[in-house]
Design a protein around this nucleic acid. Sequence first.
DNA 1: GAAATTTCTTAATCTACATTAATGGAAAGG
DNA 2: CCTTTCCATTAATGTAGATTAAGAAATTTC
Lengths: 196, 196
Amino acid sequence: MSGHSLLIASIEKHLSLNTQEQHRILLAFTTQYIKKKEFFLRAGEVCKQVAFVLNGCMRSYAVDEQGFEHNLQFAPEGWWITDMNSIIHGTAARLNIDAIEDTQALLLSRDQQEGLLKEVPKLERFFRIISEKSMAGSHKRLIDQVSVNAQTRYLNFCDQYPGLIQRLPQKQIASYIGVTPEFLSKIKAELLRRKD
Amino acid sequence: MSGHSLLIASIEKHLSLNTQEQHRILLAFTTQYIKKKEFFLRAGEVCKQVAFVLNGCMRSYAVDEQGFEHNLQFAPEGWWITDMNSIIHGTAARLNIDAIEDTQALLLSRDQQEGLLKEVPKLERFFRIISEKSMAGSHKRLIDQVSVNAQTRYLNFCDQYPGLIQRLPQKQIASYIGVTPEFLSKIKAELLRRKD
DNA sequence: GAAATTTCTTAATCTACATTAATGGAAAGG
DNA sequence: CCTTTCCATTAATGTAGATTAAGAAATTTC
């Protein structure tokens, strides 16, 4: 499947598009290649675009006063990623977004999105639905973060994203579940010991 | 301002409505009064509605294995509240939603919302925008939770919701920022000591 | 394919916050 | 109005997870 049809397929899960509409949609996006460790967005900039990942993987993360990184989201193929706070309020991004693997993504600027929505209004529905889903995901994450301990968070992560466990360095996962790499190592050792 | 016009005003921040559309919108909602400590949603049920608060205040919270409550959101007048995960996936709610003060709210079921959106399609845009905002809010909260300590989270809360600080019992705020009431008490004592 | 860099693991020590317990004060409710 | 329940505070003790350090393994780079 070509990257473009990944996007179209993802939209057509929620509504159907004729050929003309498909073309109009693709016109609004630009393609970008982002090498591992390169940035899509740096904290402090104003975020102007959302990215739809075609292949590879990006992540968003915040940096605290002591310089430690905290991963908020991973975006492998088929996922959207952006700094929503920055994009909708026009304020400086608090998030960095970079590539964990060499990545190909489709970018949609807010201006292009506005134009696209004017010409294909039924896409409002699509963007509403994916916003609701993102919000549900973010809520789920927050509940997990505040109501269970680190070991359970790790098990939940393995459960929900089995593909990513294989694929990502452990330190990235540690940063996502909110512990140090050292402590994640301990958790894994503990889990292994229990199994035997 | 009547409750209904609070809702209409809130929509008209994003798009304009004629009288007919306003009436059609109000038709989709039902009014409910919820007394302090009564539930709008219990964990385990499937959530079917979103609530728009006209006056009073509701909160959503998760309960952990040990029975402790963790507040996720407060919804005073003009705010929306629901369990988005339950409503969009049709799964059992993980959240409880109850009233912290006697509350009057407008309820919109998913079915009613679908009908409304069919007849007034431009509302797709409104719901997209508020979903994006909720998602931005939820992201902000998550960043705060993982990247700063409890004292800073408390100060940030005071900053962002000065009205709620006056209005809510401290234990509700403690539960929101993710500490025990005892520790919040300590934080406040510490802050007072520093001021003098 | 050797050197450099990054990642993972183990272990000792430390700390932010939780737990428990006890007291006084404020609401709530009949 | 009195009683009951809830709420805020302080203080002693406990613990999940952080920090620091250091070596082993894996990956990247030239």
